[in-house]
Design a protein around this nucleic acid. Structure first.
Length: 513
RNA sequence: CGGGGUGUAGCUCAGCCUGGUAGAGCGCUAGCUUUGGGAGCUAGAAGCCGGAGGUUCGAAUCCUCUCGCCCCGACCA
């Protein structure tokens, strides 16, 4: 049983994940603790994610801006809950100069800033400060802004793509005249994320509201899209917050209404990050490496010429180039087909497996026999093997070119279908008491290689305050968390799994990243 | 910040107990063979053994201090 990775998902899921990141050439650790170098293949995926999502953000009326990396310390002090939420994980700039002292380069003690600057963990405060100047009248509303940026959160434990000290994201920030509009915006962007995850990343998610204890610091309500990884754990793939007037009051974002009253704006914020790439890996990856949905594959078709350092090579290369030209002229839902002829002076078998690990949706191998017959011999990354044997598909060149757009769409759909079946098949709805849940998930262990459990969908009475804390503590003893309360629920609901009282809605419970 | 582990070639690690001045596999480079599939053989390049101090004729190895990284816990997109 030979696979392209040194470790299988079954053997050790966390190690498998790291092996994919490394062997698919996506990213590597850097000299800076917790920060990663995103390599061309990983970056190419991110660029495609950005391009598609950026279009969706603009289509819903938003404009891009850029705000500073540094935030004056006193900005954060304004919203109490917000500070408390982030205080423990901030990078702080206190000096502006270095100096060589006794031949050692060090921070110049005389160059201390009057007020420290924090490196943004998120930009609510500095954007709020700007909005306060931009918003004067109801005619300025709604204000719909987005930015693509890096942010820093000084995390104790990091994991490539899933949780890094510095990460990349987009953060949308909007200001509205009233609660209704702001809530509509919050849910609109949540729906944009849901569609994006499913249609582009081929990653099924459930959109819902986070329980009180999982809210964004300073938010009135927080919503998320939650994806299920292949080890059964949940990944929060995107969030959208209704901030009420909390930030507006803290930062004086006010406007004059049509009848000359002064009112506070209702604001929202929403974001997705490079974490999505981690979600793609753990949704679609297999024991041969990454499998990329064509929509975000930097190269959808890779042509590997079988070169032998002989004169015949020229004919093979010509054929490859001709095929490439015909393929890139095809265009479908994902734009013009992205094709690479891999001419690197490596053995063709090595190149093939490199592209298998990277997850290129279609890998074509061209030898003299294909050239002579006008054929295309290719592998589909979504259906690579039959048992241990690699499946080799054959087609005439003309038929292959004519069918490439449909084939890519089929691969996109098949990856989604596979993930969706696993997702739907692993949400238990028949566990109606906490004891059932405890028995199902078993005792808490430190071993991350626990068997696949998926999630539980159960009714609860939506307690708040201390009652919620007690429920959360009980779940915590099983390493479980409440992921969200799915939107669009209809009753009736059974008894609350925590208290036995009448349930008011369903929540999703599972282990999480 | 608590508990555990670990730093030796690009990577994974052996050597350390019982001090004598550095090894393997993979990768890399070159040559030859092989050629519808993750090949074989031969030769070669590559490490002041995390850092500082000490013991010693002599330290990767023993002692002291220090730094980094990994795993587990508290925190999180």
């Amino acid at each position: 049983m030979t696979r392209a990775l040194p470790v299988t998902r079954e053997e050790n899921f966390p190690e498998w994940y790291l092996a994919v990141v490394r062997d698919a050439d996506m990213a590597e650790t850097s000299a800076v603790r917790g920060c990663m170098v995103i390599k061309p293949w990983g970056w190419g995926i991110w660029e495609l994610i950005q391009a598609d999502l950026d279009r969706r953000i603009k289509e819903t009326g938003h404009e891009n801006c850029y705000f500073p990396l540094f935030i004056p310390l006193h900005f954060l002090a304004k919203e109490a809950e917000h500070v408390e939420g982030f205080a423990k994980e901030m990078a702080v700039v206190t000096h502006h100069r270095l100096k060589s002292i006794d031949g050692v380069l060090q921070v110049d003690p005389e160059a201390e800033l009057e007020e420290p600057l924090v490196v943004r963990p998120t930009s609510e405060t500095i954007i709020g400060d700007t909005f306060q100047r931009w918003v004067q009248s109801y005619r300025d509303l709604p204000l719909l802004i987005n930015q693509w940026a890096n942010v820093v959160r000084w995390e104790m434990r990091t994991r490539m793509f899933l949780r890094t000290t510095e990460f990349l994201w987009q953060e949308g920030h909007t200001a509205h005249a009233d609660a209704g509009e702001a809530m509509e915006e919050t849910l609109r962007m949540l729906e944009v994320y849901r569609q994006f995850c499913e249609d582009v990343l081929a990653m099924p998610v459930i959109a819902g509201e986070k329980p009180e204890n999982e809210r964004f610091p300073g938010a009135v309500s927080t919503y998320s899209v939650e994806a299920m990884m292949q080890d059964g754990k949940a990944l929060q793939a995107g969030t959208s917050h209704y901030l009420g007037t909390h930030f507006a009051e803290a930062q004086n974002i006010r406007y004059q209404t049509a009848d000359s009253q002064v009112a506070f704006c209702h604001t929202t914020s929403w974001g997705v990050s490079t974490r999505l790439i981690g979600g793609v890996i753990m949704t679609h990856g297999d024991d041969d490496g990454l499998r990329l949905p064509p929509a975000i594959a930097p190269r959808q078709v890779v042509i590997v010429p079988m070169l032998r350092d002989k004169p015949e090579d020229a004919v093979v290369l010509d054929y490859c180039e001709g095929l490439r030209a015909e393929l890139v002229a095809q265009s479908g839902a994902f734009g013009p087909v992205r094709v690479l002829v891999d001419k690197k002076p490596l053995k063709s078998a090595d190149k093939r497996w490199n592209w298998v690990r990277r997850g290129a949706p279609i890998i074509i191998e061209v030898g003299p026999r294909d050239v002579a017959g006008g054929n295309v011999t290719y592998m589909r990354r979504d259906r690579l093997r039959d048992g241990d044997k690699v499946i080799s598909n054959n087609s005439s060149r003309t038929a292959f070119v004519a069918g490439i757009v449909a084939l890519l769409a089929e691969i996109q759909a098949s990856l989604f279908g596979e993930a969706k079946a696993r997702f739907d098949g692993n949400i238990r709805t028949d566990l109606t008491s906490f004891d059932d849940i405890a028995a199902y998930f078993g005792p808490s262990t430190d071993d991350e290689t626990d068997s696949f459990k998926g999630w539980v969908r159960a009714a609860w009475c939506k307690p708040g305050g201390e009652a919620l804390e007690r429920a959360v503590e009980r779940l915590k003893s099983l390493k479980l968390t409440i992921r969200n309360a799915p939107l669009g629920q209809t009753g009736p609901f059974g008894a609350c799994v925590f208290t036995g009282a009448a349930g008011v809605e369903h929540i999703l419970i599972g282990r999480a990243y």
